[in-house]
Amino acid sequence: MKNTELLTIRSGDTGMPYEWSIGKYGSRFFREIREHQRFLGIRCPGCGKVRVPPRRLCGPCFRELDELVELSDTGIITAFSVVNYPFIDPDTGLQRPIPYTYGYIRIDGSDNIFSHIINETDESRIKVGMKVRAVFRKPEEMEGNIRDIRYFEIIR
């Protein structure tokens, strides 16, 4: 140690573990994927909007919601980004292979945007407005979390 050195301290790799509740509608959303390989939204009786994933309230209307809406497994790309830096999935500790494409997808029949991965990393082959379909894990391998959706593939 030099006598002018200013020191730092490292935190080490220990994490802060959590066990978050998913709640009533989140649990329904993942069960629907496991049982029927499709998405579930919820309609607000006030403004008529269907949002996915389903949630308890419409924020703007401040109304409690209960009208679940079965949606398909398809949607439209509204924005995307091919990501070139590494990302460690905090749930699994595994690094996603780079590059990967992050997609902003309007599920058919819904009024908001759902976020997931698109399995196309060649920017010249992907455009806003393209139709995509969800590819799920095999039902027997599903765990009730966001990774039960493997990715969305472009319908060409």
Partner: peptide, 12 residues
Amino acid sequence: RKSGEIYYDLVY
């Protein structure tokens, strides 16, 4: 442990 409810539910 309120296992069925998320923060959002409690706040509402």
